[in-house]
């Protein structure tokens, strides 16, 4: 029960890694608020499956919209006296070769992945500073530091998240707010399903540990970063990628 009496906010909790995060924090005693974009029924199912409806709350919120984000955070702070942990997890891909990438695919990815991180950090950091501490964890990707065909938009958004993470960490450290990012490799979720179906074995060959991660394996590292055991870690990008980034750098 590492997170008993802690208040956690997870963006994009209706599926994949977000759902694993929500479950993990509920199991460890936190009061968890999570957002989703359109999967209302799925979000309700996530709440139901935890069996702790008084401890978990689903909120519809488009992370691209500053006003919506501020509203959600205000609502939480009307009920709670603190907001201890923010996990910026919501993200999308719109893969395609750069030469034919539409402006919309570029801006959708930037506004969701980077814009979402910006809006939520902006909305919670004031609270975290005045409450004397907090933990922010941004879900980046190993692609931020590698080159990947068809992912110029996604890689740019995640690279920006890494840079954002380091500088925000530097600014907030004296207020005991830590800011870190986690860079998963390939995780078994809907987001990666097309890539896994198309190049699954090829990708596996390049992963030193030889398989894909389960969402729960990402959640356990996030839980560590959000815990007091990680008190002394800030501004870091932690790769959880089965060694994928090592091999690609050879």
């Amino acid at each position: 029960m590492r997170f008993k009496s802690k208040v956690v906010l997870v963006t994009g909790g209706s599926r994949g890694i977000g759902t694993a995060l929500v479950r993990r924090f509920v199991e460890e005693g936190a009061r968890v608020y999570f957002t989703y974009l359109s999967s209302k029924a799925q979000a309700a199912e996530v709440v139901r499956l935890t069996g702790k409806p008084h401890q978990i709350f689903a909120l519809a919120c488009d992370v691209r919209k500053k006003k919506d984000v501020q509203k959600i955070v205000d609502e939480i702070l009307e009920k709670e006296s603190s907001l201890d942990i923010l996990i910026n997890n919501a993200g999308i891909i719109r893969d395609g070769l750069f030469l034919t990438m539409s402006d919309e695919d570029w801006s959708d990815v930037m506004e969701t992945n980077l814009g979402g991180v910006y809006h939520f950090c902006k909305a919670v950091s004031k609270q975290m500073v005045t409450q004397g501490g907090g933990k922010i964890i941004n879900i980046s990707s190993v692609i931020a530091e590698l080159g990947s065909c068809g992912q110029v938009n996604y890689a740019a958004s995640k690279g920006a998240i890494n840079a954002f993470t380091r500088s925000l960490a530097a600014e907030l450290a004296s207020k005991k707010v830590t800011v870190n990012a986690l860079a998963p490799g390939m995780v078994n979720t809907r987001m990666s399903s097309a890539a896994r179906a198309a190049f699954g074995d090829k990708i596996k060959d390049r992963i030193p540990l030889g398989d894909f991660a389960e969402p729960e394996e990402i959640a356990s590292v996030v839980a560590f970063l959000a815990s007091e055991d990680a008190r002394y870690i800030t501004g870091q990008i932690i790769a959880v990628d089965g060694g994928l980034s090592l091999l690609c750098r050879r």
Partner: peptide, 15 residues
Amino acid sequence: AESIDFLDIVFRLEK
């Protein structure tokens, strides 16, 4: 005090 402390003080005064 450092620069971020000035903001912290302002936020707390507002509250």
